[in-house]
Design a protein around this nucleic acid. Structure first.
Lengths: 139, 139
DNA sequence: CCTTGACTTGGAGTTAACTCCAGGTGATAC
DNA sequence: GTATCACCTGGAGTTAACTCCAAGTCAAGG
């Protein structure tokens, strides 16, 4: 699979994909004779993984360390687990902060909604005051 | 309250507090005669609000727009509500992405944990094979 | 009076993560 | 056989959000 298709499928720009490869976040992708990248199944899975991790804001540096350990084979499993656990913990903390903010936003939106309703009620009352009674209205 | 105390209480650097004021994220704080900032109750509440919003990653630009509207009074309530609703929606999307990542991390951590257990079991088996039977062992 | 320490300013520097660009190559379409 | 197109490279530029710095002011302590 060429880079254009990977870009399209995962919504990542070709510049970003090449950048990831350049900095070692994705190991070198196979090339055609003329030097064009040809992503295989494994490359694609790596892209998916990186995309998921990055979408949650995991730092590239930690991910580079992780994929570096993966390349080194089974004796790095413990170290890899520790990285994931650490990042998992940081992520949970950030999510808890975001939940607090979400709650505050909901509260404030609610307050504004009521404020708008109140002002509309007042407006309506004023209109009613000013309106003359309609003789024979509704009948 | 002087800037140092605000820094300490909210874990924000004085550079950041001044930066927020400079870019209009916090309206100008009252000063002593000699020009030193003196945060009052209202200033503090603004700092708290900004801190909460920023901790969830809401962009400074949106927050500047919001606090600008607050300064303009009641006729901006509708517009303010819209900003908060938009940011709330974006936040919810980000949180959902993070939840997916959290789930994947948990899955992978679990896989690694089992892998480690398996390799330990194997190791133990190997050791048992290699160990001589202890004559009269365990009593 | 002099030093110390908290504060002030405008402006420059940093960091992470892209994003863009100029110049070049190779395969395909007309 | 030349135009087009997708791709390649190294390197420079951008963005958001700080963070640091040099030089200056002011109040309090010894």
């Amino acid at each position: 699979m060429r880079i254009a298709e990977v870009c399209e499928r995962y919504g990542i720009s070709h510049d970003t994909l090449r950048y990831y490869e350049r900095i070692g976040l994705i190991p070198p992708v196979n090339r055609s004779e003329s030097g064009v990248r040809d992503y295989n199944e494994l490359d694609i899975r790596r892209v998916e993984f990186i995309k998921c991790m990055r979408s949650a804001g995991l730092p590239i540096e930690a991910l580079i360390e992780y994929v570096g350990l993966v390349q080194q084979g089974d004796q790095t499993i413990e170290a890899r687990k520790e990285i994931l656990k650490e990042q998992r913990a940081l992520l949970a903390v950030r999510m808890a902060e975001m939940q607090k903010t979400l709650d505050l936003l909901d509260y404030k939106i609610n307050v504004y909604e009521n404020a708008i309703l109140e002002s509309e009620k007042k407006l309506l009352a004023t209109e009613v005051e000013l309106l003359p009674e309609i003789p024979g209205g509704r009948g």
